[in-house]
Design a protein around this nucleic acid. Structure first.
Lengths: 144, 144
DNA sequence: CTAAAACCTGTGACCAACTCACAGGTCAAA
DNA sequence: TTTGACCTGTGAGTTGGTCACAGGTTTTAG
């Protein structure tokens, strides 16, 4: 299979195939006649695997590690479970961060309902933002 | 004010001040004696404004646009409301994406409870991931 | 007075995970 | 035979900073 063929088969951009090849996730051989990359069924399996793992939130280095373990005939599954647990915790943290942000935005919007637009006067750029109370910056006092 | 002073006053990294200056969000003058950047109270206001706006999810180009409108004595507030609405919708979309991902991860974890680890055999890399059913890839056919 | 520490300057690399642009080589069909 | 589609590698762009480097300046301590 040439680049575009394997890309189409896996439903990804050909540049992604090239990128994964550069990154060592795929190991095509070369056609000595024209120097084209030659991918086989195993590469397609690896590519599909990598895409699924990406959707599950694994990073490329993690995926490469999993593939290398599989190449060495060690089961990568315990490691997968492990990284997966961490990713799940991370996703949940991101969700709660975003929900907090959303709550702040909604409350800002309702505050803004009552505020006039006003023209910048050299002291104020936009009341809407400047007079927005940020709950996270008041509680935290780090400086560098 | 010198770089470190304004950075400390706003609670940010001095490199961030330099970066914002390069990006045109701050317009310090120069001390002709030593060529150091000189920031004033207006720059501090702009910097604090920019940080608040960043926390609210505005991008640097958006912030620059708001500041430029304010420089021209046009009220940027209507534009702010506008971009803000879009950002809120975006945040809500991100939240629901992440919640879907989280649901998939949780269900994958419970499925994995019953699956053995297994050793890679040349056809399978990690059953856990390969046999994970992705609900989003079956229904939607877009690439990239 | 001098030497070291702390600060300043600009430039450029780095992070993630691609995507795209470019210039030149190869190959199939009309 | 000439187009057009594909291939190659390399390098840059995306976002919002952060860090490193090398050299100049200012402050502080002895």
């Amino acid at each position: 299979m040439k680049v575009k063929e394997i890309a189409t088969a896996a439903g990804v951009n050909p540049d992604t195939v090239r990128f994964y090849t550069r990154e060592g996730l795929l190991r095509p051989t070369r056609n000595p006649d024209n120097n084209y990359q030659q991918y086989d069924a195993e590469d397609l399996r690896r590519l599909r695997f990598a895409r699924k793992a990406r959707q599950l939130g694994f990073s490329l280095p993690e995926i490469r590690q999993i593939l290398e373990q599989a190449d060495d005939h060690h089961s990568p599954c315990p490691m997968v479970r492990d990284v997966f647990q961490q990713r799940l915790a991370e996703v949940e943290r991101e969700i709660s961060e975003l929900q907090k942000l959303r709550a702040r935005m909604v409350s800002a919007l309702s505050t803004w309902q009552e505020m006039p637009d006003g023209t910048p006067d050299g002291h104020t750029i936009c009341r809407l933002i400047e007079h927005w109370d940020d709950p996270s910056s008041s509680s935290c006092c780090e400086e560098s």
